[in-house]
Design a protein around this nucleic acid. Sequence first.
DNA 1: ATAAAGTTTAACAATATTGTTAAATAATGT
DNA 2: ACATTATTTAACAATATTGTTAAACTTTAT
Lengths: 205, 205
Amino acid sequence: MTKIDKTTEELILNAARKIFTTKGFAAARMDDIAKEAGINRALLHYYFRSKDKMFDIIFEEKFREFFMGVGLILGSDMPLFEKIPAIIEHELTTLAKHPDVPMFVIGEISQNPEKFLQRIQGVGVNPKSISHILDKQIQAEYKKGTIKKIDGPSLLINIMSLAIYPFIAKNLWQVVFEMDEHDYLKFIEKRKKELSAFIIDGIRA
Amino acid sequence: MTKIDKTTEELILNAARKIFTTKGFAAARMDDIAKEAGINRALLHYYFRSKDKMFDIIFEEKFREFFMGVGLILGSDMPLFEKIPAIIEHELTTLAKHPDVPMFVIGEISQNPEKFLQRIQGVGVNPKSISHILDKQIQAEYKKGTIKKIDGPSLLINIMSLAIYPFIAKNLWQVVFEMDEHDYLKFIEKRKKELSAFIIDGIRA
DNA sequence: ATAAAGTTTAACAATATTGTTAAATAATGT
DNA sequence: ACATTATTTAACAATATTGTTAAACTTTAT
């Protein structure tokens, strides 16, 4: 081999991704990652120097995944009544494939809120401008008399609550409702159809 | 002193409560707890043998707090249209005082879903019977034509999403919306009034 | 005043975890 | 074939973390 094998690097990153996202930084062990990748600890350091460096790569990646999609939809010029279904559809689809991402990203942000601001700007998503766009759209609809009075942050956090919480508390509700993996995904699938209607009915005048 | 000083025990538990609930088990250090309590590590072990034992006490306590309140309301014979505001009011009030509890409890459950089932039964809350009561109430309202078709789990998870997520992602949204502690609590206070209406409008026929 | 329990200090042991290294072996490109 | 890179092994160092202990000191109850 002339260069570091790309597939091994990916193999390790896949393992790191799995361990970090399911356990979080503090509970994750380098040995967990090595075992998951089917290799030894020495090779982890051979490829990625330290735990922190590996974590940064994975976190950066998941962070982007988590914010960019919604950010683009929210910032677009799509009408409000299309944005809501678009966000729901996007979130439930991507999170169904990566259910542990929200707990991971939000959990690590909670531990280190300071580092968060710089990072979100790096994603190309400006919370303030997005918030402003949404506010204008809500204002417009309110003046048309199509929706009740509600402010941007409230609506946004309602949408995100309904989309994200079921994944954050997935293990909890699986036990409560006695659902296995497949049942829960069907449950989520059903929500895709219901949720937009629920939200829109909740704000409609 | 003739017996172990009750106030010191409480002092330590208060510290443990704070450190465990903000950092989680894996990231919490016995030394963090000692410093927080203004004492030394030796005394922690003098009072509570091990980290695991201390954690069990705190987790058990927070676990109850987290489930018992909603459990009692849900299991009561209150009409559906009163239950919803009651839950919202109860959750937002208690969580405003203990914002880190949801992330703590849900996070630790996610790491150990197996242990969860036994524990929730110990609280005296039976998920199945609660779920059944709710289902019956929804059925009844649906037949009266007051609400749209929705199943128990969906409604329940909608309510809990809207109530709990804002605390789980509190640090995140504080940064996004540039709110300090006080602003965020005002924001939550406002939601108390809005949220019940939002949910009820979302399910009303 | 004395005994008992609380608390601190400081040192220590035990273990867990991360990170490093050298040597041996395997695989690969040229 | 050869040099280069990849990988494993195994040992090790460095540090972090938990848990234990003995001795000294402090506070409190009686």
